[in-house]
Amino acid sequence: VHTTPGLPSGWEERKDAKGRTYYVNHNNRTTTWTRPIMQLAEDG
């Protein structure tokens, strides 16, 4: 699994054909234009 540093585990930053940045979530095979926020791990 490709992961971009600074993004949550399983996420990758890519660019489309027009050079726009988007983000790929390999965990559930989705994409988004919005940069994901790293969540702190919570117990329980």
Rank of each mutant, 00 (worst) to 15 (best):
V1A: 05
V1M: 07
V1E: 12
V1Q: 03
H2P: 05
H2S: 13
H2L: 06
H2Y: 15
H2T: 15
H2E: 11
T3C: 10
T3N: 12
T3A: 05
T3P: 03
T3Y: 15
T3L: 04
T4K: 04
T4E: 05
T4I: 06
T4S: 03
T4C: 09
T4G: 04
P5Q: 15
P5T: 15
P5H: 15
P5S: 15
G6S: 13
G6E: 15
G6P: 12
G6H: 08
G6W: 05
G6T: 14
G6N: 14
G6C: 13
L7Q: 07
L7S: 05
L7C: 03
L7Y: 09
L7A: 07
L7T: 05
L7M: 09
L7P: 02
P8S: 08
P8A: 10
P8Q: 05
P8H: 02
P8I: 05
S9L: 12
S9C: 11
S9T: 11
S9W: 12
S9V: 15
G10I: 00
G10V: 01
G10S: 02
G10T: 01
G10Y: 02
G10C: 05
G10P: 05
W11E: 02
W11S: 02
W11K: 06
W11P: 00
E12M: 07
E12P: 00
E12C: 06
E12Q: 12
E12I: 04
E12G: 02
E12S: 04
E12V: 05
E13W: 01
E13Y: 02
E13T: 08
E13Q: 11
E13A: 08
E13M: 06
R14E: 04
R14L: 05
R14K: 14
K15G: 00
K15A: 06
D16A: 01
D16N: 05
D16V: 00
D16T: 07
D16P: 00
K18V: 06
K18N: 12
K18S: 09
K18G: 10
G19M: 07
G19V: 02
R20D: 07
R20L: 11
R20V: 13
R20E: 15
T21L: 07
Y22P: 04
Y22A: 02
Y22G: 01
Y22T: 01
Y22D: 00
Y22E: 03
Y23V: 02
Y23S: 04
Y23A: 03
Y23K: 03
Y23W: 10
Y23T: 03
V24E: 05
V24M: 07
V24P: 00
V24W: 04
N25R: 01
N25A: 01
N25S: 03
N25P: 01
N25C: 03
N25L: 00
N25M: 00
H26T: 08
H26C: 07
H26P: 09
N27K: 12
N27V: 06
N27T: 05
N28G: 06
N28V: 05
N28H: 04
N28D: 10
R29E: 07
R29S: 11
R29P: 01
R29L: 08
T30H: 05
T30E: 10
T30S: 11
T30N: 05
T30R: 04
T30V: 15
T30K: 05
T31R: 05
T31Y: 04
T32V: 01
T32E: 03
T32P: 00
T32R: 02
T32D: 04
W33M: 07
W33S: 06
W33F: 08
W33I: 06
W33T: 09
W33D: 06
T34S: 10
T34E: 14
T34C: 06
T34P: 01
T34I: 15
T34H: 14
T34K: 13
R35F: 01
R35H: 11
R35A: 09
R35P: 10
R35Q: 07
R35K: 12
R35W: 01
R35I: 03
R35N: 00
R35Y: 04
R35L: 04
P36L: 00
P36W: 00
P36M: 00
P36K: 00
P36Q: 02
I37N: 14
I37T: 13
I37S: 13
I37W: 06
I37A: 14
I37C: 11
I37M: 11
I37L: 13
I37F: 12
M38P: 13
M38A: 13
M38D: 08
M38K: 14
M38W: 07
M38I: 13
M38V: 12
Q39A: 10
Q39M: 10
Q39C: 09
Q39D: 13
Q39K: 10
Q39S: 12
L40V: 14
L40I: 12
L40H: 13
L40E: 13
L40M: 07
L40G: 14
A41V: 09
A41R: 11
A41S: 11
A41K: 11
A41E: 13
A41Y: 04
A41L: 12
A41M: 10
E42H: 13
E42A: 11
E42V: 10
E42L: 07
E42R: 11
E42S: 11
E42K: 07
E42Q: 13
E42I: 01
D43N: 14
D43A: 14
D43H: 09
D43R: 10
D43K: 12
D43Y: 08
D43C: 10
G44C: 12
G44T: 14
